[in-house]
């Protein structure tokens, strides 16, 4: 570890602390807004430190940086524009859409790491496991969050969508996804297997959330939010970045607790919501 990497590590620690303090302050209405701002400061310094670290350690090609800049500009404009203009009653849908894109960004990072790793040398289990888990979880949250947003918006029927044999179909898709995941972990140099994981996970996300009642959708958005946190942490393992691991784990755990509390406030159990079909619709 060079001196420079050490300093970046210290900055990551500071930003992680700001995330924790910010989340903590968001528990009470009086301090919540400042808590969110403190967390935003943590985000700014974490990203700035990562830009500096990437420029110094790997440099990179100018095309890639240009592509990143254009992407960030477009995504940022879309995000801020929607955040400013959305009707307050439609906020949960928007949060769900932001969650969806976060999950797919994590999956894209894992995919890029996979391609880079396979083109150089055989994959270590310590890299292939987080990559496959990231693609699996990230894809489920991407499609699942979009369906949940559609249900909240009323574009997709609010009542649980089930059909004869839907459970059997779910089970089959889940088995294929799991099988492909295990294969992708053990036989690491196969892009096709990772694509199978991606596609089956996308289908699984759609099927799982379709079967859930619209009244339960906010709880499901919260659950998917926690899952995206885990996907981001897995991306952190795949590219060895501590900022992603800490923030992802933090959101994964805090989001799970929040999900349990939300379900409790509605007198529902998370398990029965996920299994779906019994719901109030």
């Amino acid at each position: 570890m060079t001196d420079f990497e050490f300093v970046v590590g210290l900055i990551y620690l500071l930003s992680a602390s700001l995330f924790v303090v910010g989340l903590h302050m968001m528990r009470a209405p009086a301090t919540a807004r400042n808590g969110n701002r403190i967390s935003a400061v943590g985000m700014i310094i974490a990203v700035a430190a990562t830009v500096a670290l990437s420029l110094v350690t790997s440099g990179g090609e100018w095309i890639a940086w240009a592509v990143l800049a254009v992407g960030v500009l477009l995504g940022g404009i879309f995000g801020v524009y929607r955040a400013r203009t959305v009707k307050m009653t439609d906020v949960p849908q928007l949060v769900s859409v932001f969650n969806a894109v976060g999950g797919s960004a994590a999956a894209a990072i894992a995919f890029a790491a996979f391609i880079l790793a396979t083109s150089s040398n055989p994959l270590d289990l310590t890299v292939s496991i987080p990559i496959v888990l990231d693609v699996l979880i990230g894809s489920i949250t991407f499609s699942g969050s979009l369906i949940a947003a559609g249900k909240l918006q009323g574009v997709i029927p609010g009542n649980p969508v089930t059909f004869p044999g839907s459970r059997a179909l779910n089970a089959v898709v889940a088995l294929i996804a799991l099988g492909a995941s295990v294969a992708a972990i053990i036989l690491p140099e196969n892009t096709l297997l990772l694509v199978v994981v991606l596609v089956t996970a996308l289908i699984l996300g759609v099927l799982m959330v379709l079967a859930i009642g619209g009244a339960d959708a906010p709880v499901v958005v919260s659950l998917l939010n926690a899952l995206t946190g885990l996907a981001v942490a897995m991306a952190g393992f795949a590219i060895d970045n501590q900022a992603l691991i800490i923030a992802g784990a933090l959101v994964g755990a805090a989001g799970t607790i929040l999900t349990l509390q939300m379900a409790k406030a509605m007198n529902r159990s998370v398990l029965s919501i996920i299994l779906g079909g019994f719901g109030t619709g």
Binding site: T50, V72, A112
Partner: peptide, 11 residues
Amino acid sequence: VVIAGAVVTAS
């Protein structure tokens, strides 16, 4: 924070 991962991916 996944945007930091996007930065690493770009590099």
